[in-house]
């Protein structure tokens, strides 16, 4: 089938899509957007997190046919022309990135959290990021990064 959807603000038309393949496959294999990672393909790890019509989802659990006409935002759409998104910068500054495999998914999930809750408590951060697994950091630097991003975004009045 032919699929038309908006990805990171640009209308895209993709041909020869098998409707039962995942949005993750479409992004990575058909559109050359490898930011969302493929690890488990069963919703367990969160490394494929993207925004679908403003809602945080696992791209591996959305069928390609379901995103016809939808608006998708991936980690590739976050940075500006010269600067990283404040959440990306906070992950770097806090040392929350080791191998980096989980990072895109965690960054998208953190952006989602801070858009809804500018000043989350630690338990709110933990609940919001519970669907994103990291095998390297032990999570404490990730929590630091989220707190740092919250402070900086608050300061910049970006909400």
């Amino acid at each position: 089938m032919r699929l038309t959807c908006t990805v990171n603000g640009k209308v895209e038309t993709i041909d020869d899509v098998w409707p039962g393949e995942s949005l993750l496959y479409v992004l990575r294999e058909r559109m050359g957007l490898p930011g969302a990672k493929n690890a488990c393909e069963q919703g367990e790890c969160g490394s494929c997190s993207v925004h679908l019509d403003e809602i945080l989802v696992c791209a591996c659990l959305v069928a390609a046919g379901q995103v016809e006409g939808a608006e998708i935002k991936t980690v590739e759409g976050l940075a500006g022309a010269t600067d990283l998104h404040p959440v990306q910068q906070a992950y770097l500054d806090a040392g929350a990135v080791q191998c980096g495999f989980c990072t895109p998914g965690l960054i998208v999930a953190t952006v989602d959290l801070l858009e809804k809750n500018a000043d989350p408590s630690d338990s709110e951060i933990r609940e919001a990021l519970a669907g994103n697994l990291c095998r390297c950091t032990g999570y404490s630097k990730i929590l630091d990064a989220v707190r740092l991003a919250a402070v900086r975004l608050e300061g910049a009045g970006k909400h």
Binding site: G20, E41, Q42, G43, V62, Q66
Partner: peptide, 26 residues
């Protein structure tokens, strides 16, 4: 039928199901 896809897509991704027709209710 597929709605949220959180059960159906796991089955499709792992080749446990290959339905001839998917009916998207979303």
């Amino acid at each position: 039928c597929i709605n949220g896809g959180t059960d159906v897509m796991v089955e499709l991704n792992f080749d446990r199901k290959r339905p001839e027709t998917l009916l998207d209710l979303s």
